[in-house]
Amino acid sequence: MKIRLREPTIAFLFLLPAFIGVIVFYYYQIVQTGIYSLHNLQHTADWQTQPFVWFKNYATVFRSTYFWQSLRFTVYFTFMATVLELAVGLGMAMATFWVSRWLGGILRAIIIMPWVIPPIINAMIWRWLFHADVGLFGYILVSLGLVDKPPLFLTEPMLAVHSVIFADVWKNSSIMAIFLLGGLAAIPADIYDAAKVDGARSWFRFRKVTLPMLLPTILVALLFRGIDALRTFDLIYGLTGGGPGTVTETLSSFAYKYYFTYGKFGLGSAYAIVVFAIIVGLAAVYLSRIRRNMRFKE
């Protein structure tokens, strides 16, 4: 007697490894973090042996001005970075689409480059370019006569905030451009031709044809990047270390600091859970977008 697997059974077997991994490394971990956040957990001791403190960690978090400050920064950073990345990415994608074929090929290769650079290394790069004395950026500004002496990109609070954003925009406009390039390529060429024949000039075409048709891609790309930006950690850790003071500390980097610098796992976990809650909100919107456009066999 041969066993004939039915489709749902095969599907279940195929999904099993991915599910197990995701459960073990994401969902189970969240529950754990949730439990940690209810304990006064020091260092890496086992939580069972530590005092259960109910929501005291959360109370501490919500009362601390650092939390509100870093929440504000995280949101500001996410908003600015995503919007700027959309603008730059859209510009680069449109340019790549517009230039001649072989220039476009070159542009693609160039645009993809910043994306390849790991975030922590991106942080290093900008630490050097924003160097207070011999940074390339300050140097250029000085030699253009725009300022007398190089600005303190990473130690002046207002400047530091925007330097971090700039570094993120430099790296991540890339992936935005690639996504949008995909969206552009998916618009049938006939539609452009039809619009041309109908007498639409290029700016009009962009506003009335390209942009609306690109909108779904833009929305999803924004959400995708937004979710990523909300949890930024490496860039902060490597570029400013959260400084000056705690001005550029994100929720994620605070959580990490509490874990591994202060050894307060309980408190760090409370931070982490707050990040998670915010992201779940955004993720819900994101997933409903994807779901609407799903074309998988049902």
Binding site: Y26, I30, Q32, T33, R231, F233, G268, A272, F276, L282
Partner: peptide, 13 residues
């Protein structure tokens, strides 16, 4: 949804 959970959340456990 799993993929959207920040590593900061899962790192400790």
């Amino acid at each position: 949804l799993g993929a959207m959970i920040p590593i900061a959340v899962t790192i400790a456990p």
